[in-house]
Design a binder for these strands. Structure first.
Lengths: 229, 229
DNA sequence: ACCTGAACACCGTTCAAGT
DNA sequence: ACCTGAACACCGTTCAAGT
């Protein structure tokens, strides 16, 4: 009985991976399963619940193997580079581990970013991910009163980066010939002219992400140092 | 002739403000203008171009009055708290000014965040916004080679925060009774238990945003100080 | 030059009916 | 218990036709 549900989820995720989130319609998913659209409803409730379930599964893949059965594991499909079963000792390494796992996941399943922004991640595994970052921040020495706020800051950046990468916000960039700079009067962009040598750099997003992580770690350390803030 | 286009844009933005981005269909916009759906196409090209134009207008509202005519200004409608015509002297103040203007705009028009993530902001005014942040970072003493990357880091956070606020990601929070913590085994969330006293804080998102800005400013200062990075 | 109307290929979801 | 088929109220967009 739960078997049918997993098959439906598999089909929906495959469809999202292959043809984007817009291609995930109840009709298309049903077609892939080989069934009438209406046959899905008893199993997934509605389209919104289907999307929530897809999100929950992906977040589960992000985490180290659970100690308890939060959700039935994916029946088939590639498990996408989860965190290593053994977490690193240093908080800095755990921070980078999680960040890279999240970004790699988002690159494999680009549709997750827009989903995460559009609905509260209330799946059990989402809470485990939050708890993982909480622990990183506590181990770094961040005062307890600041930990929840910093978790939101950091995960907002991770999500934003993933969404930007997936949605193409970083893609074209200000040097794109279609960037309509010509429509602006001379001198309207004073800072651009000074920075022309550096404006092609964002093609190397891997290096950029690493540098961002280094800056965020430094920020966390600074907050941990003067704990009176 | 351009008059009709502005009327259509007004209708689309009003619809988005009142009933959300999903309510902006070509048919609904046309109905509001008092015309057949197909009458829109000569003026706005397609739905995608209509959404781009809406985004361009909103970004224009964010900026101090342009020195050149980047776009015909909004014909009617509330102009939503743009930056003051006179920009602050200190980069810290300009940083906060811009961040607050962006957040207030996103609260007034919650649909902009999902739009910004889903298509590259290639409107002329978007480049002016990027240039404004470039200038702030340069004035802070950030090395030129790091400025474009830091602009993306900072604006990614701004956008992510706005999207999270608009989409409800911060909303329910981990203390929400529907947050299915009960489904997790005891001890699965070790850090949560230590932080229970602080988990209600995110209801005061205004204060949280200010604290985030302070941390980001500190990060920028740290990068400016050892310029050898 | 500008708009209309019918049409095409889609949506999510309800409801009564089948087996 | 599980699935189907027809229907309802929607989409964006094309195309030929009107004025």
């Amino acid at each position: 009985m739960e078997d049918r549900r997993q098959v439906i989820l598999d089909a929906a995720m495959a469809l999202a991976d292959e043809r984007g989130l817009d291609a995930v319609s109840m009709r298309a998913v049903a077609g892939r399963v080989g069934v009438t659209p209406m046959a899905l409803y008893p199993h997934v409730g509605s389209k919104a619940e289907l999307l929530d379930a897809m999100m929950g599964r992906l977040i589960g893949e992000l985490l180290p193997p659970s100690t308890g059965p939060a959700e039935v594991p994916a029946s088939a499909g590639q498990r996408a580079e989860p965190l290593p079963g053994q977490l690193a000792e240093r908080w800095q390494d755990r921070f980078d581990q999680f960040a890279h796992a999240a970004r790699n996941l988002a690159r494999r399943h680009p549709w997750i970013a827009s989903l995460l922004f559009s609905r509260p991640a209330v799946a059990p595994d989402a809470l485990r991910a939050v708890d993982l970052i909480y622990q990183v921040l506590l181990d770094a020495g961040v005062p307890e009163s600041q930990v929840p706020r910093l978790e939101r800051l950091v995960s907002t950046f991770f999500l934003g980066f993933a969404a930007s990468e997936a949605g193409g916000r970083f893609g074209a960039g200000p040097l794109d010939p279609r960037g309509r700079r010509e429509q602006l009067p001379e001198g309207a962009l004073p800072a651009f002219s000074r920075l022309v040598p550096w404006l092609g750099m964002h093609c190397r997003l891997d290096a950029e992400f690493d540098a961002d992580l280094a800056d965020l770690r430094q920020m966390i350390e600074a907050i941990a140092e003067h704990r009176d803030g």
